[in-house]
Amino acid sequence: MLSCKEANRLMSQELDRKLSWGENLGLKFHVSLCDSCANARQQMSFVRSACKHIFALDEKSDQ
């Protein structure tokens, strides 16, 4: 099984490239058993989402 450290590297990379079948399976398996890594993964994707919203583009109302 992946270590938390390895899982964290993959959860960042999944935002930048398509993971291989094996990597994807390893990551999914790990986060299904590890709450801390599941939280880290949610937080990383939240960071991306915040980047998409910070300049409030594609919205008529500006911040």
Binding site: S3, C4, K5, E6, N39, Q42, Q43, F46, S49
Partner: peptide, 24 residues
């Protein structure tokens, strides 16, 4: 963040953020 085995250090464990999008 991680110890030598690649597991989380106790104080570095990420906690749940609930529904963070409400912060937007």
């Amino acid at each position: 963040l991680f110890n030598q085995n690649g597991s989380w250090n106790q104080e570095a464990k990420p906690s749940a953020w609930g529904n963070p999008e409400v912060s937007f």
